[in-house]
Structure formats: C-alpha cells, structure tokens
C-alpha cells in the first residue's frame, strides 16, 4: 500500500539570542491511508512544531533545516510558496489547538467556509460551493442552518465541529489535529472524537492526533508516537504501547497514568524535561532514565526498527536483524 504520508529526517531549529534550539531533530514517520497516529509528549517536546513543520508554517526565528514531508507523490518541502498555499486544506488540513477560537467572530460560518474553498481554484460554481459547505456541516452532525450563523451562537463543541467541517472541505489525505478537544468536557470531547472518526472513515484520510492525554490516545488511535526533546523515542501500535512499552521513557509515561485498578498510586517521572538549548549529551533522556548505561551519556541512540512495525531510539535495544 502506498503510504499517505512520509516524513524523512525532518529537522527544525529555532534561532534565539541564547543559541540554536533543535525543536525537531531528525524525525522519521510513515502513515498509511486511514491510519490514526497519536503523537504524545510533554510540553516543549516538539509536538506542535512537528504539526507546523508539516504545514510549512514555521515562522522565524524558526526554520525547516532539512528533511522531506511527502504526501502521495508530492514533496511539500520543495513546493513553491504559492503551490503550498494550494496544498494546505486540499492535501493536508490542520486543526489547531483551540481551533474554535480561530473562527472569525464577525463573519457567518458559511462565509468562512466559502472563503476557504474559493482560495483554492476548484472550478466549482457558487451554488456547488454552498452545497459542498452544507454537506460538510452535515457530515459533522451539524444542521444546515449553522451555515448562516455566527460563531457566538454556537457552543464550544459545535464550534470545534465547524472547524472539522472546514478542515475536510477539500477532502485532504492527511489531517493534523493539535489537541482538538483540550478545552472541552468529556462528553463533548467524546462527541467531537466520534465525529472525527466518522469523517475520517468517509475520506480514508490519515490522521495525526497531537496531545498529552494518554486516555484519549488509548481510545482513539491505532499507533502511538512518543516524543521527547524533538526526537521520537518510540513508535508502536496502541496495544503494544499500553501493554508492553519498550523505551524507558515510554514505560515511565505509561506507568504514571491513573487507572481504575491502581487507585491512590501516584508515580510521576522524576526530574524535569531539559531545555532544548541545553540538551544533555548522548540520549537526551539519560539523566532521568532509570536504566541508563554508560554509552547513553556519550552517543545519541539511533532510531531503528526493533520489532516488526515497532521503532525506538534506545541503546537497550538492538536493531531487528
């Protein structure tokens, strides 16, 4: 099967007065059509940078310094600025954090949807565009009347669903959702996630769900990628990740989660994540790692396949023969 998305050795740095911060340090990832990947990590680990880099929306002082983002047969990193504008929304859609606050408060929902389609010369007539927008609203379980409404007339969950409706207008192959439900309560959150699930099924698009809510990941995604200081530490199927995580950081992360069985047990990860400007030598997790060995202080472990379809960057594991 042809992958929907291929990321090869993606590198992003931010240049500050204090020096160069490598926000993404050689990320490799492949996603199949219809696959749901969860990208988790602490704040500052590079999750959102990764989303922005895929959209080519990194702003100075940040810069994409290398690597490729390939969707279908198009390499986004080599497109001209103009072609990239067209590719956004039609190839790759982005639902940002707190997307519901990104709606223009003084314009009707419909106008904002029509705008989005018009910006990509689709050759549709005005009537077709309106029809397409209304269909999109219906596909996220909103009524057609919402087309004529203003954002303040909608609840938070409804606004979030409007943002999803806008995201899928041009049937992108890849949808990047950055904490799409972080401001919603659990019932609305479930409703929004079920909506995303449904539209994704229909489009057959690949989804990258970014967040730090491991519970949501367990319920929603097929594969989990754990990120730390701009590097992928482990990428495994959701089942493997939750039942037998490999990388020590992933192990600690899974064990810190509350569950019905281990009531009253609190197990955090000792220490704090290092600042990107002052990364420790070797493996960036070694100062907090309970299983660190000598080599971890010197060499950065390679990111490699350790089992079938399972990747990790850790000296404890040998590459699969």
């Amino acid at each position: 099967m042809e992958p929907a998305l291929k990321i090869n050795n993606l590198q992003v740095s931010y240049y500050t007065d204090a020096g160069r911060a490598r926000a993404l340090d050689g990320v490799n990832l492949t996603l199949n059509p219809g696959e749901k990947l969860g990208l988790v990590g602490e704040s500052g680990s590079g999750k959102s940078t990764m989303a922005l880099a895929m959209m080519r929306m990194i702003k100075p002082p940040g810069r994409i310094e290398g690597g490729e983002v390939i969707i279908g047969d198009v390499n986004l990193t080599t497109l001209s600025e103009e072609d990239m504008l067209k590719a956004r929304l039609s190839r790759i859609a982005y639902i940002p954090q707190g997307a519901m606050n990104s709606l223009n408060p003084v314009t009707r929902i419909g106008a904002q949807m029509v705008d989005a389609i018009k910006a990509h010369d689709t050759g549709m007539s005005k009537k077709e565009i309106i029809e397409k927008s209304m269909e999109s609203l219906e596909s996220v379980d909103l009524k057609r009347e919402v087309f004529k409404m203003y954002p303040h007339e909608l609840s938070g969950g409804m606004k979030q669903r409007v943002c999803i409706a806008i995201g899928i207008l041009l049937e992108p192959q890849v949808i990047v959702a950055d904490e799409p439900t972080s401001a919603l309560d659990v019932i609305t959150q479930r409703q929004v996630m079920e909506t995303i699930d449904k539209v994704q099924d229909k489009l057959g698009a690949a989804i990258i769900l970014i967040g730090h809510d491991m519970g949501l990941m367990a319920q929603f995604v097929d594969r989990v990628a754990v990120m730390y200081t701009g590097r992928l530490m482990e990428v495994s199927s959701v089942k493997d990740m939750f039942t037998r995580p490999k990388h020590p950081y992933a192990v600690d992360l899974i064990h810190s989660l509350p569950n019905l069985e281990n009531k009253g047990v609190f197990k955090g990860i000792p220490g704090v994540a290092p600042a990107l400007l002052r990364l420790p030598s070797g493996c960036s997790f070694h100062p907090r790692c309970s299983q660190a060995i000598e080599i971890c202080q010197k060499d950065t472990p390679p990111y490699q396949e350790i089992e079938d379809n399972r990747f990790a960057a850790c000296h404890l594991f040998q590459e699969k023969a």
């Binding site: 379980d141 479930r190 929603f220 989660l257």
Partner: peptide
C-alpha cells in the same frame, strides 16, 4: 452514567462510549 462512560481511560481494555450521546439541539 453518561459522564463516566465518556471518560477516556488510558487502558485499551476499557473502551468508552457504550451509551449514545443525545445530540443537543441549539
């Protein structure tokens, strides 16, 4: 019951969403 059923437990053996959510009208 609806609230508890919608909790995303970080446990792949405990699935959420057995009860349907009645979509709230405006």
């Amino acid at each position: 019951q609806l609230l508890i059923d919608s909790i995303p437990w970080p446990d792949i053996n405990r699935r959420w969403g057995k009860t349907d959510i009645k979509v709230e009208d405006m």
